[in-house]
Simulated scan of single mutants.
Amino acid sequence: MSQKMFNSEVEVGKFLGSITVVQDAYGAISQTSSTYQLHTSPSGIKVLAFNCFSDYTLRFRNGEDLVSSDKHKVVDFVSTNVNPKLSINKVVVELFELPFKELSELSNQVYLYFSRFKTQDQIPLVVTGCDLGGYLAILNTLLHQHYTDFEESNGSKIVKRPICITFGLPLISNQHLQGAISELPQWKSSFLNVVAKPDLLISFFSSTSQYMSFDTFLFCAKSGGHTAFEDQDMILAFLDGMVSSNA
Rank of each mutant, 00 (worst) to 15 (best):
G13P: 06
D65Y: 08
S156L: 11
F150V: 15
L171N: 08
E64K: 02
S107I: 13
D70R: 06
G155N: 10
G155P: 08
K73Q: 12
S33E: 12
V12A: 04
F117K: 10
K101A: 15
L184C: 00
F15T: 01
S245A: 14
G224Q: 03
H72E: 01
I235P: 00
Y211A: 06
V47C: 03
G241R: 04
S2V: 03
S30T: 14
S213N: 13
S104N: 13
I202Y: 02
S173E: 08
L139I: 09
P198A: 12
H226V: 04
S190I: 04
P42M: 12
L98Y: 07
R161Q: 11
L103R: 08
V127A: 09
Y111W: 11
F15I: 12
I138H: 06
Q145I: 12
S8N: 05
F205Y: 13
C130Y: 12
I235R: 00
F150I: 14
K188G: 00
S104Y: 11
G63N: 09
K197G: 00
A137L: 08
G134Y: 07
V82I: 15
F96G: 01
N108E: 11
L125R: 03
S33C: 08
P99K: 04
W187P: 06
F60P: 01
L200S: 15
Y135L: 10
V127I: 12
H72D: 01
C164W: 01
F217W: 09
D199F: 13
K118H: 09
A237N: 06
S68F: 09
G225M: 07
L112F: 09
F6V: 05
R61E: 15
Q23R: 15
L239N: 01
V127D: 02
V47K: 07
S43E: 07
C52N: 04
A137R: 00
V67H: 03
S189T: 08
D215H: 03
N193G: 01
F53H: 06
A180Q: 04
S182A: 13
E230M: 00
I45M: 10
T216N: 03
T216M: 02
K118D: 15
D149C: 07
P99I: 01
L171R: 05
V110K: 00
Q178N: 12
N174V: 09
L112S: 14
N7E: 11
F100I: 08
R161S: 05
S68I: 09
H144A: 03
Y36A: 02
A221D: 14
V243P: 06
T208G: 12
C164G: 01
F191C: 04
Y113P: 05
I172Y: 07
P84S: 08
L58V: 05
E9F: 02
F100D: 03
M242V: 04
P198N: 14
T35H: 07
T128M: 14
T32F: 14
N246K: 13
Q37S: 13
V74P: 01
I88F: 00
L48S: 07
Y147N: 07
V159Q: 09
S2G: 08
Q178R: 11
S244P: 14
L200D: 12
F217Y: 12
S8R: 13
L103M: 10
N62V: 05
F114K: 11
V194R: 03
L139W: 04
E183V: 00
E152C: 15
G168L: 08
K222F: 06
A221W: 07
K71A: 09
S33N: 13
A25F: 09
S2M: 06
Q37N: 14
I45Q: 08
C52W: 09
N89S: 02
M212C: 10
G155I: 06
L218G: 02
